[in-house]
Design a protein around this nucleic acid. Structure first.
Lengths: 180, 180
DNA sequence: ACTCATCCGGAACCGTGACTCCGCTTCCGG
DNA sequence: CCGGAAGCGGAGTCACGGTTCCGGATGAGT
């Protein structure tokens, strides 16, 4: 593969992330191509369809999530679940909420399953070390993460870029075990 | 205005709510017209553009929210804020997350302002009666509501229709004052 | 430097979906 | 009942955006 080709591919995914993140998936492929500094023909050389481009984008993003989940798992002291939620928030915010597509639509189900798997593991570990309130399930964590997505999507056109941090603070307040 | 025209208008708004709620705003106007049992021409007689139809829809929804907000305000015993969040959740769930458009996009800013106004009032009342943890602001409530929207949108294609209730339970856990 | 396989750009194509137009139908006051 | 104004339906128009195509440019091995 030629050097300029790999460079263009990278640029295209980055451009897609920027454009789709800013203006939504309804943005034209032409906007993405222009942002990447190439023509639409080039875009279609690398990705057979717009949907494939989006899939590549999500592949990238979910790689990041999986990586952070793995590193959170390494803790094994019950703090992993908190770290994971923070990291997910950061990635979600950085990608302007695009990561939510992975959840919301049926895209890349294996990835979603893998992430769920790890969350279950993190929850189990947290319970083992009593860093999570009793009765909180993996499903509850996922609920909070869906909420996190909603918050980030809303702040999107707004002013407060770090609102999601405050949100996590609030939302996780009731997940921590009762400090007596 | 002729009777059948009034009826058709109502049917159109209801149909739009159903169709757009189920399949998203990208659904064609033809689907809405068919659902309402009329032709597209009729739709365009009542609403000059698709966007106007959506605006009418949101008008309806925000009417419901304002009404529930008003009735929550009547309590004046500090419980209004909780009732309001429950009611908003119910409306949001019923409309399949369409209500979120009011928030997310810049649509109908006066309505949004009015709702914010009432939330501020509810928060003030709650603090007066100490039914809300100190340091929780109107902005925090809105964050939780954004999260609520995210949860409902996600459950959308899923199985668990009542997930948002559990979410509210979790999310509001840390908003209540420390029961000592 | 030469060559050719690979890659690039963007004009042209085509399907989709918002919107218009107009002949026909239906309501309703007299 | 009758007349005509208001309303209806849906085929046709048009613009937009995803996709294709191909002549020209460009990288890389000899």
């Amino acid at each position: 593969m030629r050097q300029d080709a790999v460079r263009n591919r990278r640029h295209l995914v980055a451009a897609a992330r920027r454009v789709f993140g800013r203006d939504g998936l309804d943005s034209g492929v032409e906007a993405v191509a222009k942002q990447a500094g190439v023509g639409t023909g080039t875009l279609y050389r690398h990705f057979p369809s717009k949907d494939d481009l989006i899939a590549a984008l999500l592949e990238d993003l979910s790689d990041e999530v999986l990586a952070s989940a793995q590193s959170a798992l390494d803790h094994r002291d019950g703090s992993g679940i908190w770290e994971f939620m923070q990291a997910t928030g950061a990635i979600q915010a950085d990608s302007q909420g695009l990561l939510g597509l992975l959840w919301r639509e049926g895209r890349r189900p294996e990835r979603v399953a893998a992430i769920r798997e790890i969350i279950a593991e993190l929850v189990k570990d947290a319970h083992r070390h009593h860093t999570l309130a009793a009765g909180v399930s993996q499903q509850d964590i996922i609920l909070i993460l869906h909420g996190l997505r909603g918050v980030i999507e809303s702040a999107h056109d707004g002013t407060d870029e770090d609102a999601w941090k405050r949100y996590l603070e609030l939302a996780t307040g009731s997940l921590r075990p009762r400090k007596k």
